[in-house]
Amino acid sequence: MTKSHFTRFSSGFTLVELMVSLVLGLLVVAAAIQLFMTAQISANLQRAISDIQDNGNFGINYMIEDIRKANFSADIPVIKSGLPYAGIVLGIDNLPSTLTNRSANLLTKKEAEGTGKKTNISSDQLTIQYYVDITGQFDCEGSGIPVNSYVLQRYFILDGNLRCDAGIYPKTVPTGNDATGNPRTHTIVGFGGNGEIVIRNTEYMRILFAVSDDKVIADNISNDPIPADGLVQKNFRYIDSYPTSGTLPRIRGVQIGLLIRSNENVGGNPDIKTRNGSAFSVLDKNNVTVNTIDSNLRQVISQTVAFRNALGSGS
């Protein structure tokens, strides 16, 4: 009797094939994860850039609209220390002597920032004033401005935000004596608080003045044309001595530099963190460093403003 022999064939993957398939699958998954992470970092970076641009450009444009009003309705189109009602308030001599609460701490100052600063160097403080002669005007804190009033607006950094603090005093000079026989005075109303936030996440502010040689005697502006070179970079400088009661060069404009941080954390991008650990250049200041090394995007924004009410006879 003949026995039948059946050959049994088994189907499937060998161990080597399984290992190759597993490795290929892991490579595909790793590539997909890498693409996802790259896209996420790119999206975060784009949001951070948009955040800085929207926040910074909107805020600085709002700020500049007010700064352009500086020196409006002044007796002469000149800004410098010692002149009452001058548009840049460098010292108490730029305010009427009839004001009882003049404070140098609330005026234009270099490195005026106190506690809570976000950088190794304190930010500057800029105080302007302008006259309001029409109804329906509002200061930077949203308060209505009475007609025939002067407005003081102080721009400063507090806890990493650019803020504006506003105060008002009447243009009319008080006359006569009060009930106690002393000369009547005015007070600045509403000045000296924490103000309203104009630009969030602003860690540093630097102020430069566009100055011209003050060669005109006794502020006779009839022969004081605008310099031929206009407001060019060489005219800008940091006046280390402000505020002061001495005579500073005539100021024709201001340059503002801001170091702004994004709300968005650009995590996973080592270049951002490395950049935050280096010094930033804000206008003429080249060694500005942040106290906290994080992964938020930072950008320097600058703007130049010519004082049309302080350009002299050529204005």
Rank of each mutant, 00 (worst) to 15 (best):
Q255N: 14
Q233V: 13
D178K: 14
G116C: 06
I33N: 05
N223I: 10
K234I: 14
L99E: 02
N276V: 09
V290P: 07
L24C: 04
D224A: 15
N263E: 14
V211R: 06
A210P: 07
D178A: 08
G59F: 00
S295A: 15
R252S: 13
K69M: 01
H5K: 12
E141D: 13
R252F: 09
A43S: 11
V198W: 03
P174G: 09
Y169T: 00
L45G: 10
G230P: 13
G253K: 02
G160H: 03
E203G: 09
K118W: 08
F209T: 02
Q153W: 03
M19A: 08
R237L: 15
I256L: 14
H186N: 15
K171T: 02
L26H: 03
I157F: 03
E111Y: 12
F13M: 12
I121E: 03
I239K: 09
F138E: 00
T115F: 13
I199N: 04
G193A: 11
Y242R: 11
D284F: 09
A32Y: 03
I41K: 08
S315V: 07
T180A: 11
N269S: 14
H5C: 06
T304N: 06
Y242V: 14
Q153N: 07
N235W: 06
S212D: 13
Y238H: 14
I49D: 06
G59Y: 00
R206L: 12
F280T: 01
S10T: 11
R261M: 09
F156V: 01
C164E: 00
M37P: 01
S212G: 07
T274E: 08
E203H: 15
K110Y: 05
I52E: 00
D75I: 05
L208V: 06
S281D: 08
L231K: 05
G230T: 01
H186F: 11
R252M: 15
N182S: 13
V288K: 01
T185G: 08
I145H: 02
Q34Y: 12
D240R: 14
L208M: 15
L90D: 01
G82V: 04
N309M: 00
I134T: 15
E113W: 04
I251Y: 01
R200T: 12
T185I: 07
S143V: 10
